[in-house]
Design a protein around this nucleic acid. Structure first.
Lengths: 166, 166
DNA sequence: TCACGGTAGGTGGACGTCCACCTAAAGTCA
DNA sequence: TGACTTTAGGTGGACGTCCACCTACCGTGA
């Protein structure tokens, strides 16, 4: 990826103001910046997880199961906690099951549902991946430490306003 | 999507600290927050663009061409400006061309390349979509106005450190 | 008890992103 | 000038996300 001689988002913002869309220019910049930030962090994370045959989506599901009291939960509950559609969880479970990291078991209390259950291999891999992620990515945040608080605060507000949590 | 009674990212952060991964907990929260923020903003944007048969990726390409002096540019240049792989641009061009919003023309100065050229329909649609996006999304940023500056600053730092621009 | 609306989960498909690989045309350098 | 390297762009495929639709089961109310 080439390094540009200028900030492309600042450039777009300039165009917005030029066209008289000043009151929308910050919002445009915010949306575009979040898009690019997502790309940056997911690439950093997936670079590390590739060595473990994982992606961030699948890693998150493994850790959610790891932290759950029984090591298993219904697809629906995982979907709510990870805040993605059930079908995204289904897709992750398919691949994790293929690799022997989780298994599907019938839900004893609901004949419609299945429980996704962490296997021993899955738990071990999740912990090894966490060690790598912690040291190679999370301990070296993608933003200077002194800005991290403001970033987390702003994004928490965004998530709250989007109705993620009470 | 159900509203959770608690912030799932704060909950994950608590688990991280419990496990002694304190120095990585903020980074983990930052990465996860950016992921979720991306989902929130892209859903808001695509909700509006759906009425125009567009997605944000294709909209961005249309606007890039609209702002360019000739209304056309090589795939490679669009890829650098949008900061996505060339193949992502190829894919967007395929769909925009299918819908008559851009056309591919041979690059007169490079026999290997093609120029992506905005059609009149493409330009008109981009402007109508911009009107809708400005009023329905960008003018109502996904974060309180008073936090917007801090968010933009933090994300600009992230992009700079990732090597996006000088 | 039983009919019916609601819910859990899966399927198939569209889309954007990336990667590995390919072809053809430039560019380079002896 | 000619052989080698680099570059532009496309293909095919993996993956995650969403949506529309489907099936099977649950729970509720008459």
């Amino acid at each position: 990826m080439p390094r540009l001689p200028f900030d492309p988002i600042a450039e777009a913002q300039r165009k917005w103001v030029e066209h008289g869309w000043t009151d929308a220019s910050d919002g445009m910049a915010a949306v575009t910046s979040v898009m690019r930030a997502h790309q940056i962090v997911i690439n950093r994370v997936d670079d590390v997880l590739r060595a473990f045959g994982l992606t961030f989506a699948r890693y998150e599901l493994l850790m959610l199961l790891h932290f759950s009291s029984r090591g298993s939960m219904p697809v629906k509950k995982a979907s709510a906690r990870l805040q993605v559609h059930s079908t995204s969880v289904t897709s992750a479970v398919d691949r994790l099951e293929r690799d022997g990291l989780v298994r599907r078991v019938p839900n004893p209390t609901d004949g419609r549902g299945v429980l996704v259950e962490l296997t021993d291999d899955g738990r071990a891999l999740a912990l090894r991946a966490t060690e790598a992620l912690n040291s190679e990515v999370f301990a070296v945040p993608p933003v200077p430490r002194e800005r991290l608080g403001a970033l987390l605060d702003a994004l928490r507000e965004m998530r709250r306003e989007a109705g993620d949590f009470a």
